[in-house]
Amino acid sequence: MIRFKPGAARWAPPRLLSRAPTLAVPTTWAAAAVAYRLTCPLARDDALSARLVSSAVLCTVITGLVLHVRRTLLRELRRARGIAEAAQSALLRPPPPRADGLAVAAVHLSADRGARIGGDLYEVIATEHGVRAVIGDVRGHGLDAVRTVAAVLGSFREAAHDEARLEGVLRRLERAMARHLRERAHTESDPAVAEEFVTVLLLEILPDGEVRALNCGHPWPHLLTGARADPLDRTDPLPPLGPFPLPRELPPVPCGRLLPGEALVLHTDGAEEARDTEGRFFPLCDVLTEAARARPLTPQTVLRTVLTALLRHSAGPPKDDVALLILRNERHVRHSAPALRPRVHATADHLQYPG
């Protein structure tokens, strides 16, 4: 015998209750058709006029049912799309407009029609260790890529605050990626799971503008200064996360200082590899140089310039996911900072790759 606690709601079949309003209209239409057939003399009359009336009634019933089903499906579709958009926004949420004196803007263009997110990821977080940013590119598209994005971003959002050193953040991402692939291997029979990987670029910007980076197979960002756009660094990157273990030592690469008024443009390879109708690659560096000459130089103007040129070049949406993340230093000039800063380009001699 089932007993209910006092004040507790009585159980009822939730599926049936939720569908009751939906079933009421077609039930009414069907009842009207049956009642017409059983009670109306015209339904049993073989005369041509009676048949025409019966046909009109039948067409009216069918039309009503079709319109009702159509409205119901459209309502369910809008509800499902709203839920999906909310979930996507929570996963790849818009970055804050400012992070500890840095102006921030980002955009993501998914290659999958109707999706807001795909295989690209980015995030910016102001922590007690400095402003930390990540941008990455997961191999592939679809739901599997979205799950990988969720695993990497979830790990970064915790590690960025917890880890005092940038290499500690990367270790956490490596472990999260390995755990994610192990779980997929247990639940999926696809051998390609073992070949999944994600390229990741980690940046750390300290209060004095010093920039340090750890790059796992990702394109280097561009520095917008004056009227120029130059790659931030050209050292050999580490291997992507997934197929190979990272080296035992992970010293961050020093990249000089981001001075007030300068901007960093982080991007995925979809921006560089977008092709036009003749197969030519998108001239990202030239477009960024054009964006660097704009006044005022803001992350929004850089995004607008790049997106306009990219969509014009590819004659429509890109064939691959594209993510752009812009960080501009809007901190006040510090008198203790040097007037000129050297462009530090570290070498790859200190990086140890697994044999």
Rank of each mutant, 00 (worst) to 15 (best):
R51S: 09
L307H: 02
N329H: 14
P221L: 01
T225H: 13
R10L: 14
A346Q: 10
L214Q: 09
R328M: 11
L327E: 01
D45T: 08
P231T: 10
E123S: 15
A106R: 07
L121H: 06
S314P: 07
V149P: 02
E272S: 15
L23V: 15
L181K: 11
V57Y: 06
A227F: 01
V107Y: 00
T298E: 11
T39Y: 06
L91S: 10
C285K: 12
P239D: 02
T22M: 08
K319H: 09
P219I: 05
A8P: 03
E183D: 14
G154C: 10
A213Y: 01
F244N: 07
A111C: 15
Y122P: 10
E167K: 06
L264T: 12
D236W: 00
W29C: 14
G256H: 03
R312P: 00
T289M: 07
A339T: 13
I135S: 08
G64I: 10
K319A: 11
E163T: 09
E262L: 06
V287F: 03
V211N: 06
A213W: 01
E262M: 14
R81C: 01
P251L: 05
F4E: 07
H141Q: 13
S49C: 02
A176L: 09
R275W: 00
H345R: 15
L109K: 01
C216T: 14
H267E: 03
P296G: 05
P317S: 07
L266A: 12
